[in-house]
Design a protein around this nucleic acid. Sequence first.
DNA 1: CAGTGAGCGAGCTTCCGCTTGACTT
Length: 899
Amino acid sequence: MPAKNGAAKRGQDGPGTGGIRLVIVESPAKAKTIAGYLGANYVVESSIGHIRDLPSRAADIPPKYKGEPWAKLGVDVDHDFEPLYVINADKKQQVAKLKKLLQDADELFLATDEDREGEAIAWHLREVLRPKVPVRRMVFHEITRDAIRAAVQAPRDLNLRLVDAQETRRILDRLYGYEVSPVLWKKVMPKLSAGRVQSVATRLVVERERERIAFVSAGYWDILGQFIAPARDGDKGDEPRDFQARLVSVDGKRIAQGRDFTAQGVLRGDLRHLDEESARGLADRLTGRPFAVTSIERKPYTRKPYPPFRTTTLQQEASRKLGFSAKHTMSVAQKLYENGFITYMRTDSITLSETAIAAARSQAAALYGSEYIPAKPRVYQTKVKNAQEAHEAIRPAGETFRTPGETGLSSDQFRLYELIWKRTIASQMKDATGQSVSVRITGTSTAGEQAEFGASGKVINFYGFLKAYVEGLDDPDADRDDRERRLPKLEEDDPVTASAVNAEGHSTRPPARYTEASLVKELEEREIGRPSTYASIMGTILDRGYVFKKGTALVPSYLAFAVVQLLERHFFHLVDYDFTARMEDCLDAIARGEAERVLWLRRFYFGEDGDEGLKELVSDLDEIDAKGVSSFPVKGTDIMVRVGRYGPYLDRAGERVNIPEDLAPDELTAEKAEELFNQMSTDRELGKDPETRHPIVAKAGRFGPYVTEILPEEPAGTDKKRKKAAAKPRTASLLKSMSLETVTLEDALKLLSLPRVLGELDGEPVTAQNGRYGPYVKKGTDSRSLQGEEELFTITLEQAKELFAQPKQRGRGAASAPPLRELGVEPATGKPVVVKEGRFGPYVTDGETNASLRKEDQVESITIERASALLAERREKVASGGGGKAKTTPKRRTAKSRS
DNA sequence: CAGTGAGCGAGCTTCCGCTTGACTT
């Protein structure tokens, strides 16, 4: 049989014997490699990841299920949480290709990854392809010729319990995400999201910011001495003689250092806390005094190499050393992978194949000498608890490694490859060894105080793996692993002289903000998220506006504070840091056949023994105080931060001011809040109304820029008569042609003169004014919209009369607007159906029922059949009370609950 | 967060995890 499909990868080993075997893997690049290892009777193709999933939105729901109350969830919660699967739109083509290839195959090998998701992909493939030929499950953990050939010889059956565990995971994530997100839409802001992973990630960032806000810095002082060791016979002059040592204790009492203070700035333990005055005094009293070495402690020093990269450690190092975001690292790595330079980049494994170990060792020996290679290969064991280890570690591909220079790569790909290459080589090299030394020096001050100084040194005798690779640092003050700190040769009782003794002031610092890399690391340690999702989690919390970047630091927005506060108060167990860990335990039990998924999902969703389930929690919307969850006090003030629909603002007894978007929450101190209130005068005074003498100001308001007049303050004891006369200030929105910065007093007076009286018609006054829907003319209760704002000042009574003589342009008048297309008569009802352009875009109507076109519909191509289906769906919805105006109540409720 | 005057087809937003391109910036 000739290869029907050019994209399918056929083996190269000449004509095969026996039947054709179709092997399906997840990744196209992997398919290409594996095809080269198998005979010509193997056809290797990929699924390109998952091929089916729960419907993500209404348009994906098959018509048959549209009416079901659970259709949007895609999970029939009342019938054992039966999931509804649809083939992903972007995989239909690939599924068709696989079906076609299967027609010519005599055997099907499902060779997806050996982990929970891979097992599920294999199962979905079997369900969708419905093979009539024997099906085998084939697994391997490294892509080498031997491993692949061995895998083909030892297939097994699908593990349906593992598939069950995956399905449970999927359903739980759907219920969480699609039930909790709408609560946020109603109580905080539309389009927000909540989920098992992103909500915990957001909470971590928010909690760190809370710690920073609560942090109280403590000041402390210490003393740094410059010392000189005695000259020795036989010195060649290349050994250092001077060194630094820091004050450790005075009269046996240890000096307080930064780590001795709590986050509240309180000193822990009975220590000597030096302030500036005492530190300077002591330094003076020690200057010029004799010192002597009182103790020397030498210890051997060894440092083991770092394990090979997995996804998270690669992201961290690429961030530290190359400044890459998680997303950029993954996209560069993807290219390297596709072009055969590295192994798979989404992995939690640090295991190297035997061929890779051999390649690393021989290359390290060639580059650094055989003395840099340990006798036995190094084997690394993962510490990630929920690791699924379907892949190898991230390493250079192939059975011998290309040096970066041999790859011909450039720029970011070169740099990332070089990082991976060096790390892999180094992981098979010897430990670095040396000596560390700790020295104590004591002297007596002029006042008789016993002062002890300490210094430590590190000498590396053999660099080992550090020759090839040194890990980057998050803390700029920390020492790199290859950094030596040489001390002079010293012996006990050696006299040393102090060339300088200086007091130094310090203050404790709040915990550092997360970066993308450190947040990913934290999530991995807490077993939350997977290698394939770490980068996109960062994308999600950035896109939702939960965090923003300041340099590389992740700063939470007040929106995130509001969302996290809501979740903590009303869904605490869902954002508990152990939630995922408990879920994993349960999924493992399901995979072992020791737990029943329906019971577990039922408890989660419907509750048990008085514990509320998710369903009940998301229904009790009245329980959630929208204003409360969106309010935070500013420390030490009576000012509240509130998160409104238009962003965060400060509220002090009704007086309000916006918070700048880029202001980090921990920078909003009482002073800063005060400053914002003082700056509030973005209000610009334009001058005084020549008639009333009232000041006229331009302001930025809820509905955009506007002008208003400032009325004189009412005297305290106003009588009734005056109160009645007390007028509201005139206000008017700026025209679109004006701006807050350039509007003049003349403009303002013109605007405030509205409404303009044009005259009288039919015994009623006719006025021109600006309103909610733009400029219009009004006659009694009748009105007509105007074309442009300028017409407000130019329209005559005569022109207005003409307008009132015509029917309204919109509203009922719209019926006379010509349709975009006529689709003909609907067979079911006999009514003519047309397509019209409306306020929300194109829709079809039979004159009574209207239905919007969906995303997949086009005005030009929609058929009467499709229109009829849309109308039928709409009629049913209205009849069941689910659609139409009855549903506008949530809006009111939202507004009410927020005010 | 200023508060003015209609009457109109709503429908959608969202999760996590597995994969690439096809898109736009």
